[in-house]
Design a protein around this nucleic acid. Sequence first.
DNA 1: CTAGGGTTAG
Length: 889
Amino acid sequence: MKIFNTSHEATHQILYSSIKKALSSASNSKQLHKIHSIILTLGLGKSVLFSGKLISKYAQFKDPTSSLSVFHRVSPTSNVYQWNSIIRALTHNGLFSKALGFYTQMRKMDVLPDKYTFPSVANSCAALVDIEMGKVVHENVLDMGLGSDLYIGNALVDMYARFGCLAEALKVFDGMPERDVVSWNTLISGYSANGYWEEALDVYNMARMAGIMPDCYTVSSVLPACGGLVDVKEGEVVHCLVEKIGLHSDVVVSNGLLSMYFKFNRLLDARRIFDEMVVRDTVSWNTLICGYSQMELFKESILLFMQMVNKFEPDLLTITSILCACGHLHDLEFGKFVHEYMKRSGYESDTTADNILIDMYSKCGDLLASREVFDRMICRDSVSWNSIINGYFQYGKYDEAVKLFRIMKIDSKVDSITCVMLLSASTQLADKDLGKKIHCDVTKLGFDSDIIINNAMIDMYAKCGQINDSMKIFEYMKTHDRVTWNTIITACVQSGDFTLGWKLIHQMRTEGLRPDAATILGILPMCFFLAAKRQGKEIHGCIFRLGFETDVPVGNALIEMYSKCGTLTISLKVFDCMEVRDLVTWTTMISAYGMYGEGKKALRAFAEMEASGVIPDHVAFVAIIYACSHSGLVEEGLASFDRMKKIYNLEPRIEHYACVVDLLSRSGLISKAEEFIYSMPLKPDASIWGSLLSACRSCGNIEVAQRVSERILELNSNDTGYYVLASNVYAILGKWDQVRMIRKSIKARGLKKDPGCSWIEIKRRLYVFGAGDKFFEQFDEVNKLLGIISGLMAKEGYVADLRYVLHDIEEDEKKDLLCGHSERLAIAFGLLNTKPGTPLQIMKNLRVCGDCHTVTKYISMIMQREILVRDANRFHNFKDGICSCGDHW
DNA sequence: CTAGGGTTAG
């Protein structure tokens, strides 16, 4: 203690320098506090001699409160060093607005900042994205004549980059008289962080040409940009450099490489990087786990998490990655467990983490838990709203979703993703009005140049039957990507404009875009709609050339195409060649068998599917019951219906009941079918009564038919088909007043009856015939031939079934009308234009009428021709007077 | 003064 009492100059000198030394070497908070208390004991608390160092040291140990208390002891002060210290201390501890507050305060007190003041101030502006303040600070720098300072320049480049103002950042960079590796790194990372991958790489290459030796920062900044490019090449070049100059021992660099390889789905390269890392940290593990998740290897990523837990404490990012994997696996139990773990680790109220929780719970089907997370969130961003709304949409809770959307609008949190989601919901619901409203929002919010939104709008209008609006958007768009083309082509095909669809495919190719699997899937339905086998085969060739033959959905579409084109054998070949078969593959094959009346084969396929471990769903059961129904396999069909409920626990939907009604009534069990309808737990709709009615008509059960017609009319359906059916019944009964009444009500509703037409392809040309058509080549010859056939049929015992004529006219005229049915015209035309014995293939958009069915049987016998007719429902193969449908049609 | 890992959609 003696030494402190001396007032000797030299002793003071020794004292100060030893305290200074002690301060510099303090390596933890405890030591620092000890030295601090000595300083206070000496009465030097108000002195500026040690306070700057103390402030900085406390900041270093993450104790900004102590930094502040030191500063307050010396304040007010005009010593710039004290101000610099406190501003830097606060900035480094994340107290940015406090730091800026001190900067403002020092300016007010007319303390002149120096070159050490600005880097931290610029940092704080950057962190707060306070562009206004940033500009003021930049001006202050220039006013002070510090514009050419290297460190300040670097800080300003960084600041503008973080504002997203890359042009401004570049301007500062270009104006710098002196640049070092940090300047280049900052610019590279600025471009990289804002997603300007090419620009980041350009600057990196410029740095290399300028003779800059890349360091860890350079590499870590450029690697994310490499990951964003289309080719892995650039990333590999950087990887080589890393090995060459020995940067791979840096954990951040290795993590960057790891992440880059995962962006290209290069699992093996990524895994090698990870395995060869000498030092790994939490980020390394997170990158690995996340990478596996990105490659949809969710189970593996959870296993990695288990391995990691033994070595490292998982952080919030680890937890959220795992939660994400749980969501994809629909593993609610593990998801809940991780959520608990997250709470226990004290990670709550992180917006991104909560967003992922919302998504995880809704993916797992626990909407209540989703909503609970959403409700307790303090700070919700757009993603939070989008995720919860998406959850409601996924589970069909449209009202709740739309309700939240309205609140979200008030909160002005609607972004482009919200719009895409709502458009997709409008599409699924075919809700034109909702779609139009969203279109308005899109325009108001200025998202109408967003390509994804435009694609979604094209799809929405098309699925709502507004193809013209789809075309308008398509033409209005400045750029079209592959999805745009696929969407518009699919839209054309679905709306029946095949010519335009075909034209657009060619246009797409001339614009240099290769068709992909989705293009194929869009165009193939055209082939099966037209039964255009030739075009279908052409596309099949394309599929091989483009290498999509192993794509499962493409294979499925091919099976459907060939079956609907009348070549079940090729369908089967495609099916046999497929290495992977999913539920859709099997269902398509079963439906195909159904269409050809191959009920037994359909049942066999269904059993095979079950044996191969594929679980049938609602659609598969529709297919199998339908197949039984079209083959008269009543027992088997009913058994399938039971199996669906008992074995698979699937609640039958209205379409299954309709199939069963069809199954019973097609086989003539009209009263059983009627009983079944009355025992249904669901309210019978038009499809149910319609099935029964058409069967009544075929078997001539007028009594039930009349009763059912009344039921159908009560339902006020918007499907013209049912009105036509009912009107047909009244026509048979000769109740022409009722017939007229129904016609009127169809008109009043603005509905249109699909005009019947048939078509046939001869020598690469399609010939289309409407009912009663008179204006086609060879009309006279066709008419003559039909007359001759008529005579021959009469000899064989044929009598026209005039119940299929639905107009109030004379008997003779009725016969004429029947002869004018489009399928007969097509058949006669085919007979005239092909060599004897050639099989004919006719397509019809509606169901074949009973009389035509009979007539075609006769023709197949008299003319010795095999005639394949595809109507709206199925195939009929006529041969020697017999139809493959066994009259179950 | 500069660097790496997590969420929603067509």
